[in-house]
């Protein structure tokens, strides 16, 4: 993306600059769409993969772990190819073919780790949003370290003990749903394959 210097682009993404995001779509999305549609995907896959790739870059920027040695376009393209191949692999359409990574991605293991982290967060969020609105609020308030008595009054519950019990039920429902999701197991195995250490995500 010649219009911007890499540091300028990183800074803009960190600030979530709408204008730059639109430019990135204008310049790079058509190529991504073409690639995905030419490889068993459709336009909706292209939208999702492009968004995931951008989020992955954003998360890398947030953790100060983004290193781009070539142009932004080839870096983004490499991530898109990587994510699409992972998706195809997941859909079992791509059995037996070795995963080819682009030369522009020099941190392969780091990318896989980021991918696993992002996918797990997507899964968690998906299950979180499936909870009732009271459960969502309750978990959010607890995680935000809001005092229990305040939560009791905010939620209109009768006692603090009831609030704690409700939190336990909600949290258990959420954690159990994620734990039992086959996708979670897949990601756990993938993390295990990548690194024989216990996964830290």
């Amino acid at each position: 993306m010649n219009k911007y210097e890499i540091p300028e682009l990183i800074d803009a993404l960190k600030k979530e600059d709408n204008r730059v995001l639109l430019d990135i779509y204008r310049i790079h999305f058509p190529e991504a769409r073409h690639y995905i549609m030419a490889n068993s995907g459709n336009v909706f896959d292209a939208e999702d993969i492009f968004q995931d790739a951008m989020l992955l870059i954003y998360l890398k920027i947030k953790r100060n772990s983004l290193q781009i040695n070539s142009g932004f376009g080839s870096y983004l393209g490499g991530i898109i190819r990587f994510l699409w191949l992972k998706e195809l692999e997941r859909k079992r359409k791509y059995f037996g073919k070795e995963l080819q990574l682009e030369d522009s991605i020099n941190d392969h293991s780091d990318l896989l780790e980021d991918y696993i982290r992002m996918e797990k967060r997507k899964l968690i969020l998906e299950h979180f949003l499936e909870l009732g609105s009271d459960c969502q609020k309750l978990i959010h308030l607890f995680v935000n370290e809001t005092p229990v008595d305040r939560i009791t009054s905010l939620m209109g519950f009768s006692t603090d003990q009831y609030t704690r019990n409700r939190r336990k039920v909600c949290k258990e429902r959420l954690v159990r749903a994620i734990w039992e999701n086959p996708r979670f197991k897949e990601l756990k195995n993938e993390a295990f394959r990548q690194d024989t250490k216990v996964p830290r995500w």
């Binding site: 947030k62 995680v143 949290k171 959420l174």
Partner: peptide, 18 residues
């Protein structure tokens, strides 16, 4: 991870911007 994700409003916001 659940706690981190629930607090990660920046990710949700960034997706919305995208």
């Amino acid at each position: 991870s659940v706690n981190e994700t629930v607090l990660s409003t920046d990710e949700i916001r960034f997706r919305k911007k995208l």
